[in-house]
Write a protein that binds this DNA or RNA. Sequence first.
DNA 1: CCCGCGGTATATCGCTCGCATATTGGTCGG
DNA 2: CCGACCAATATGCGAGCGATATACCGCGGG
Lengths: 225, 225
Amino acid sequence: MATPVMALVESADPARSQSEEAYLRIRERIVSLDMRPGSVVNEGRLREELKIGRTPIREALQRLARENLVRSIPHRGTFVTDVNITDLARITEVRVVLEAHAARLAAERLSSADRKCFTDLLQVLEHGPSVDQRELMRLDQQIHRQIYVAARNPFLESTLERYFNLSLRLWYLVLDRDVSLREALEEHMDLLRAILAGDQDRAEQSMRRHVTGFEREIRKVLVER
Amino acid sequence: MATPVMALVESADPARSQSEEAYLRIRERIVSLDMRPGSVVNEGRLREELKIGRTPIREALQRLARENLVRSIPHRGTFVTDVNITDLARITEVRVVLEAHAARLAAERLSSADRKCFTDLLQVLEHGPSVDQRELMRLDQQIHRQIYVAARNPFLESTLERYFNLSLRLWYLVLDRDVSLREALEEHMDLLRAILAGDQDRAEQSMRRHVTGFEREIRKVLVER
DNA sequence: CCCGCGGTATATCGCTCGCATATTGGTCGG
DNA sequence: CCGACCAATATGCGAGCGATATACCGCGGG
């Protein structure tokens, strides 16, 4: 198995196509705010920066457009989707029900392999209460994605992956602000314990609290801008 | 407003791009089983049948692949996704929570325009109990899509649209079989009444019953194949 | 005679490249 | 000052090229 830490950043897998490569790299830039919300996406510029032809870039942008990370207006240009409180609310609205259901399914269908993963993650949470936001963000990603896998539903997984990226960008937006992450940690631990205990109701409720709590924190920072 | 009956079939809107055109037409063929599950998708054939170049077809197929309506294997071919009970269960699993939540939101956010639409639909259900399955299918589509709109959440709407098409294909699969649609009618009416009454809990529960009931009917036909 | 294997043939695909087209913003003329 | 034309820009679409994986066929060995 590859190192988990590398699996999250841009691992140079030569097997994936240039379209996929372009998609992942541009998505990474958008989500991490390297490409700012509202800014124009220059196709030619991306082409020379990524050393990739025009078709793959075009396909990647179409894909990102359908995921609401960019907005393409014919013959006018492509723009990074702006962020606003309305979208935050709408995204959260969907995420709450989907993530909560995924947590329920994960608690229900937990395999021994998944159990080990969650146990390890819980260990990290309990022992090393990292205060670095980026590190916490990475942990949060791992937890969520592991839950998607443990839910044993590829459709749910891909849908949630999309919404997670939308949310992740919002998180990047409030990085370096003082958001209270103490409760998030508690939520995570409660969530993992519930899943490991096979307590579906508690896992679902815990995840619901976690996602709504996340929305509340982001909103606080977002409104004072 | 265009005639609703035409809005559902292939209306020739010259404004949409050829990619969109190709996507919609191929999707229609797949969902309606005109292209059979498991069959190969011949790109050249589609090109001459739709009188469309290669790039739009290619883009449409990529989009369909991401929506799980076709499966593309590099250098081997593209195939219409097969249907099976497992996928039915997984799709339903997601649909139940999303559709139920959409129904809840629709009941909560009902605008006067939406109210009129739902009232009209309810009238049709109460007065003309059509026994034609295709007609019922069309009505079901209208109801669901109207709920998506009434939920006032574009993200939820697009996600549900995707899952609805997956389910719609399954419905086509059991057409001309004797499925009991009497309860479906009752469910629809109860659902619409709940939404019109603004009863969120009942709308959610009603939709939940409706979707699970749908799955049960499809499953019955699917297992005896 | 049958089975396994290697090489070639073929079909498909990913990507590059170029042309047509539509929208915009600026400028020139009235 | 306003309206219309024009150039610039970016996209949509079409066709081809090289790469690659599979399938088939012929050959050699058992």
